[in-house]
Design a binder for these strands. Structure first.
Length: 427
RNA sequence: AGAGGGAUGGCUGAGCGGUUUAAAGCGGCGGUCUUGAAAACCGUUGACUGUAACAGGUCCGGGGGUUCGAAUCCCUCUCCCUCUGCCA
């Protein structure tokens, strides 16, 4: 969430940013927020005065009791009952204001970076890069099959078996399908390690605090699977556990920047979507993903965002997949992000662009909730910036690899992965 | 899962109702001394809130209570350790 102090000091900037994010009537929202903030601070000042008086009386009573002046001490207790009542009333008021302020802040999205284009939705996203092999979109010869037919033809992924043991959206990977996915995971992890990331294997269930820390809660509660008996959530992305490692941490200067990578299954309930665009591997309840997470000083985060985008682009190049990079517009960018670049690969049989990665800079938006800080050169405690990106999400990469590389002989895999799979064709 | 013991500042650890505005040690930072370093000695050493700046307020695992006053007493939750049991 945004810092209240920032909003107080940058009211116009905040309102401008919220307009770009297509928030309705931000003037009213910010006015209400600041009015409540004023009331809160007045109340706190008043309560603190009452507490200060109570504290000093208690000390005096302590002194008198010690000196054996019991009667004088008793006399002083009279005032305290009044103070106590007042203090209780003011504290309740203060708690109420604070709860309301927090609720209001939870509803306010992050402000977009200046490079984020204006726009209402997906159609206004800006294509900032098109890979060489996507300049002319590949056209497949003969009767190309979409991946949901290819997986049946070669018997490498079975949705029906998944339905039998779990439900829709839980595919079973078999034989070369399973081996290809495992190979890709290893490839992605090795690449990240080469780029200086530290591999993390986090738990894939998290507690409520972690859900709040990275912003899945309170709003997106319905998106996560919840284990009622233990009060735990299945993670929707490795971002949640890996970023929450640093919740309530003041990071040492020499440990910055933090670069972590983790492979986990991801679980998403994603209720209510139907049709061809969610067929096959396009949208699942459980899927595998390798995620990169960085934590940087504020002045470094945009340079880091670029580096992370370059890194993801490099992997797609090695996989020889046609892709484009979109800079999401104000209306389409996620609630938490200040800047987000989506990577989409072209899946030639579906003739569709599939989102395979999303690289975001959250600036201090997550760090503020996480209380993730460092000491700047003046010794002052400051919020850090958090960033993350998929590198990469497996199912859609798999879909594109299968579709784009199909031939009459079988699916010919890109060279880079042969050493990982131990085979070069699925037939 | 049963029984018992714990949770205090970056770490170790005292405090068990009123100079605790948390002792002491270690570590960190600054200084004296030194050609430099070590040792020794001296000083310093958290977070949040609040203010123009002070002041003030909050924080001893979380929440609630008793009291004029709680790190200290009571209730409750969470987590950790030891023993027993179970187990990949």
């Amino acid at each position: 969430m945004l810092q209240l102090s920032f909003i107080r000091e940058n009211k116009e900037l905040t309102i401008k940013g919220l307009h770009k994010k297509r928030v309705k009537n931000p003037e009213q929202i910010i006015d209400d927020l600041l009015a409540l903030d004023n009331k809160r601070r007045e109340t706190q000042t008043e309560r603190d005065g009452v507490l200060a008086r109570s504290n000093s009386i208690s000390k005096e009573i302590g002194g008198l009791m010690k000196a054996g002046k019991k009667e004088e001490a008793e006399a002083m207790k009279a005032e305290t009952s009044l103070l106590k009542a007042k203090e209780k009333e003011l504290t309740e008021l203060l708690n109420d204001y604070e709860a309301k302020l927090t609720q209001m802040l939870y509803q306010i999205p992050n402000l977009p970076h200046e490079t984020v284009p204006e726009g209402a939705g997906a159609e206004d996203n800006e294509v900032v890069f098109l890979s060489q092999n996507a300049q002319n979109l590949p056209v497949l010869e003969g009767n190309p099959l979409p991946h949901w037919d290819l997986i049946k033809k070669y018997d490498i992924i079975d949705f029906d078996l998944g339905v039998k043991i779990s439900g829709a959206g839980f595919p079973v990977y078999k034989g070369k399908g399973a081996r290809l996915q495992r190979a890709l995971v290893n490839f992605f992890l090795d690449e990240a390690i080469k780029a200086g990331y530290t591999e993390i294997q986090p738990p894939i269930v998290v507690n409520e605090d972690s859900g709040y820390g990275t912003g899945q809660l309170p709003d997106k509660e319905g998106q996560m699977y919840f284990i009622n008996a233990d009060g735990l959530y299945l993670i929707p992305t490795a971002e949640v556990p890996i970023t929450n490692l640093y919740r309530d941490v003041i990071v040492k200067d020499e440990d910055l920047p933090i670069k972590n990578v983790g492979f986990t299954p991801c679980f998403r309930r994603e209720a209510g979507s139907w049709g061809a665009h969610v067929r096959g591997l396009n949208r699942l309840h459980q899927f595998d993903k390798v995620e990169i997470v960085q934590i940087t000083k504020p002045e470094d985060s945009y340079k880091t965002h670029q580096a992370m985008c370059d890194y993801v682009a490099g992997i797609l190049d090695k996989l020889e997949l046609p892709y484009r990079i979109l800079r999401l517009c104000g209306g389409d960018i996620s609630f938490n992000a200040a800047l987000c670049h989506d990577f989409e690969v072209y899946s030639a049989a579906q003739q569709r662009w599939l989102e395979v990665s999303s690289v975001s800079n959250f600036e201090t938006f997550q760090a503020n909730r996480l209380k993730l800080r460092y000491k700047d050169e003046n010794g002052k405690t400051q919020l850090l910036h958090t960033l993350n990106g998929s590198a990469l999400a497996l199912p859609r990469i798999l879909a594109a690899l299968l579709e784009n590389n199909q031939t009459n002989e079988g699916i010919k895999l890109p060279k880079i992965i042969h050493a990982y799979t131990g085979f070069d064709i699925i037939n």
